[in-house]
Computed example of a mutant assay.
Amino acid sequence: MTDTPDDNLDFRRPTADVGYLLNKLVEASPPLDPNSIYCNLLQCSHFADTAVAVFDGDSLVGFVSGYVIPNKPDTLFVWQVVIAEAARGKGLAKRMLKELLSREACAEVRYIETTITPDNEASWALFRSLARDLDTTLDSEVFFESETHFGGEHDAEHLLVIGPFHSERATTV
């Protein structure tokens, strides 16, 4: 990225060797839902074109994983955003999302979808801010119910839909 602060962070397309580091970063970042190491390896290999790993030296300090929804080629689903505690509050999450939107794999993307629990204030603020930067709307509705889909063991997940937006806007914000 060319318009980032002078913080020496390295934004990369992940490779499989980042999978274990990602697993440990998520594990250290409650209340995020941990995935298996195998899942994280797939995020860093099969889904690398729609993921961003951010390093500060040798340390993984941020990661965004997502994918273009197979039956919605204009929609990027953001699976997970994680920031190391020491790197929080510096706008890194939004920088990673903008980096992702600038990638060739997202050239046709006009919408972003993600799910968030009602009490995850940081994620709500992030995606509201991104929608403002993209000069578009953010709509939400319950997507997965606590009792129906999680057996009461997890809060409901709200589906957020950001868009439509123009690809040129996404790469210049």
Rank of each mutant, 00 (worst) to 15 (best):
E145T: 10
H149C: 11
T137K: 14
L130R: 04
E147A: 14
C106E: 03
D135H: 14
A105T: 07
W124M: 02
R95V: 02
S123V: 07
R95K: 15
T117C: 09
L97W: 05
M96T: 08
T115A: 04
D119R: 13
S129H: 08
I112T: 04
W124I: 03
E99I: 05
D139S: 15
I116K: 01
S123C: 09
E141A: 15
D135V: 12
C106L: 07
L134A: 07
H149A: 09
A122P: 08
H149F: 11
E121P: 03
L126R: 03
S102D: 05
E121H: 12
E145G: 08
A125Y: 10
W124R: 05
Y111D: 06
E99M: 05
T148L: 15
A107K: 15
R110H: 12
F127H: 09
A131W: 01
E141C: 10
L126K: 03
S140K: 08
F143W: 11
C106W: 01
L130P: 04
I112V: 15
F144P: 01
I112S: 04
H149I: 07
L138E: 00
E104N: 12
T117M: 08
D139G: 14
S140G: 10
L134T: 06
R110I: 05
A105C: 03
S140R: 09
A125E: 12
C106A: 08
I112Q: 07
L130Q: 03
E104Q: 13
L101A: 05
I112H: 00
D133M: 07
M96C: 04
L100M: 14
E147T: 12
F144H: 11
L134K: 04
S129D: 11
C106G: 01
S123H: 05
L134Y: 06
L100T: 05
Y111Q: 09
A122L: 09
K98P: 00
N120S: 11
K98Q: 14
W124Q: 06
R132E: 12
A105V: 00
D139P: 07
V142M: 13
L101Q: 00
I116A: 05
F143A: 01
A122T: 11
E108M: 09
L101H: 03
L97P: 00
T137D: 15
E104A: 09
D119F: 13
C106P: 02
Y111V: 00
E121V: 12
S140V: 01
T137R: 15
A122N: 09
P118T: 11
S129I: 07
T115E: 04
I112M: 01
I116G: 01
A107P: 04
F144G: 02
R95M: 02
